[in-house]
Design a protein around this nucleic acid. Sequence first.
DNA 1: GTCTATAATACGATAGAC
DNA 2: GTCTATCGTATTATAGAC
Lengths: 201, 201
Amino acid sequence: MGADRRTEILRAAARVIARHGVRGLRVAEVAAEAGISTALVYYHFKDRAGILHRTLEFISDRAERYTAAHPRRERDGDPRRDLERSLLLEFQDRPEVRENSTAWGELQATAVFDPELREALAEARLIWIGELTDTLGRIHPAAPEPARTVAAERLTATLEALSTRWLSELLPLGHARELMRDAIAVELAQLARQPAVTVFD
Amino acid sequence: MGADRRTEILRAAARVIARHGVRGLRVAEVAAEAGISTALVYYHFKDRAGILHRTLEFISDRAERYTAAHPRRERDGDPRRDLERSLLLEFQDRPEVRENSTAWGELQATAVFDPELREALAEARLIWIGELTDTLGRIHPAAPEPARTVAAERLTATLEALSTRWLSELLPLGHARELMRDAIAVELAQLARQPAVTVFD
DNA sequence: GTCTATAATACGATAGAC
DNA sequence: GTCTATCGTATTATAGAC
């Protein structure tokens, strides 16, 4: 774990974001969290916006490691189980997961007022939805692609909203997991019933 | 519309929040938006936090007027249509609606870091979900209550996430409306199929 | 009730020594 | 690479006149 300074700072920034949000991030607090001076933070990063940008990249990468990456690595496993696991991974009370979920929610919320952030967000989401669409295809190969994409969009939307509610303690973790599981079941049932429009092509 | 100063300020604050978010709200900008001095804002409100608190109440009240209130007033109409209309009301490109949607999303996002806001949020949401559960009951009286509540929770979750995506221009308005409509159809189909567990009670 | 200052401070960012 | 010290400014909040 001989992480360099830059990475240490990014990790510190991720923790600060989890506590106070993107817009509550203070450079001085990041420095304190990393145990260094503010000047050193500015030596490694151009400015506050730069810190934010890199931190969000960092978080996004980390999220891929524990969500999107999984289904791929286990392509030959039960896709139904893979789907459920990858969507439920977001609901865990581990600091690392909490941090990522919080930051992702903040990214969402911030993007409403910050056009610069939207591009990165759009890209990350496309990848995520693409992976989900693939997994859904492995479960129901007969379901037409547009229907699977729409299902994936709805599932990610549900996940994000449930995650926000969990993080603001409006929903206990177990309840959120249940609702997510139900949502998956509902979407899969829908896909199963939906006869492929192009089945005779 | 002989609104008093306080209300004028709250309206101004709502507009500012729609532009820059809760955490982007500057007291000076609220004052300018209301056409008065910052000192007068402080005469009417204790401090920045007080302005925020009252503005969110104001917005929450206004939202109830154009969503939750509607289904009630038109109880005897087609409940299926009422449901769809009340959930799609959030997706309109009118300034008032945009303001409320934006502020509601901000309320959500802010609550993750602000325990004080959670209570108001939880209350508003309970009312909202309750109304939806009722409407679902008028559509499918045979569906058991827990299933309807869960469907209502998922529908509100979907609405919030789709709203965020629309506001950050990740999803065009029409597409968001379509996804919302689909989500309603899916939930209703699910409720219709779900045989009432307590049908023989 | 409303204004024009202005105080007080929090915060981002940099200079310059080591 | 890293620090201490500090500058400049944006922002909250108040004092005091009308």
